[in-house]
Design a protein around this nucleic acid. Structure first.
Length: 345
DNA sequence: CCAGGTCAAGGGAGT
DNA sequence: ACTCCCTTGACCTGG
């Protein structure tokens, strides 16, 4: 069964009302220093609280926080800031709210975090940034647990998976203990990279202290010879007792858009305004059929097969929280799709 | 207020 | 060589 269904980082409806994470460019940070960062953090914590309140009202208990919550994470020591106490108090307040409502909060640091990089500078930056993500959970009052996962990919293959994984493990050991108790790895969507079967090897190399997040969509592009059930079984087995395994689910943007455009022309329905750009079906089809297949759709149809396990599912779709509602009922997704411009991104 | 140019970061794939 | 993709397009400036 699926316990929680969640969404990632952005709430499209609240975003329209300016409730969102804000960051700043390097030049602004350099000019403004810790004052600018402090203001951004406090404002972002306020937005996060509003998003969580919204989630609670809508009975959504699973949410991925954006790393911009603390802009330029890993480049400064928050504890040295003048207004650290204020930050700590507010972070603790939001964390307490999440615990009270029994919400699961996670992070997914960017693809620039590469523990296995041959470049020591990249590794050092990665370690700093991962430790900093972990410290945010500390500030929020969460004890180290894979419940609050910090999800990353292996990050590179360098045409030598064996050596790369060895390097990954060495550098993983350099993380703070509390960080290692939160970091999990996700399977990749490229055949040159790491499928669940590769990650199982990594899991063993890490003394079985590294859980695997199963990404349903990525698995389709890189099965590593496993069926979906086999891969999910394996990934689920890597999570400790007492922590519900987390998974990611998304669908193809190209398939979604091509299906919509085909339906419009087939049914001769009145097109969206922006469809006037495409006078013929062929032109429209050509355009949409060139969208990268691996890109994420606006909404998802499911069904999601938990293959008998109890799992949490993070929906990775462009329309975010609306995609969660869409998944709850097919009529809703039809209505939402009809209201979404074809050319949104 | 808006449009457009620009913006931290690593690695891989498609063109 | 350039663009897109991934965690999240958003910041910032000039008109």
């Amino acid at each position: 069964m699926i316990r929680h269904i969640g969404y990632a980082c952005v709430n499209t409806q609240l975003q329209a009302k300016k409730v969102k994470m804000s960051t700043a460019r390097k030049s602004t940070i350099d000019a403004g220093g810790e004052e600018v960062i402090t203001d951004l953090i406090l404002s972002n914590l306020d937005s996060l609280y509003k998003i969580l309140e919204w989630n609670h009202k809508k009975k959504i208990k699973f949410f991925r926080m954006g790393s911009e919550l603390f802009p330029w994470l890993g480049t400064y020591d928050i504890r040295k800031f003048k207004r650290f106490d204020e930050i700590e108090y507010n972070a603790g307040f939001v964390g307490e709210y999440a615990r009270e409502k029994r919400m699961r909060l996670t992070f997914h640091p960017g693809p620039f975090n590469v523990l296995c990089s041959p470049n020591e500078e990249v590794v050092e930056k990665t370690i700093k940034e991962l430790d900093a993500h972990s410290e945010i959970f500390d500030l929020m009052g969460f004890a180290p647990s894979f419940d609050n996962k910090i999800n990353i990919h292996v990050g590179g293959a360098y045409d030598d998976k064996e050596a790369t994984l060895k390097r990954w493990v060495q550098n993983w050991r350099r993380l703070k203990d509390s960080t290692r108790q939160r970091v999990v790895v996700e399977n990749d969507d490229k055949s040159s990279m790491f499928a669940v079967t590769d990650l199982m090897q990594l899991h063993k190399m890490c003394n079985k202290e590294l859980p695997i997040t199963f990404d349903f969509f990525h698995h389709k592009f890189h099965t590593g010879g496993m069926t979906e059930k086999e891969a999910l079984d394996a990934a689920v087995s890597t999570w400790p007792k007492g922590v519900v395994p987390a998974t990611h689910y998304s669908e193809s943007r190209r398939e979604e858009k091509v299906k919509i455009i085909t339906d419009i022309f087939r049914n001769n329905r009145i097109p969206w305004e922006d469809l006037e750009k495409w006078p013929t079906f062929k032109e429209a089809y050509d355009f949409y059929s060139h969208i990268k297949y691996q890109a994420h759709s606006d909404y998802v149809d499911g069904p999601i097969d938990s293959h008998g396990h109890t799992i949490d599912v993070m929906i990775e779709a462009k329309m975010k929280e609306q995609a969660v509602f869409g998944l709850r009922d097919a009529d809703t997704v039809r209505k939402l799709r009809a209201e979404t411009p074809l050319l949104n991104g």
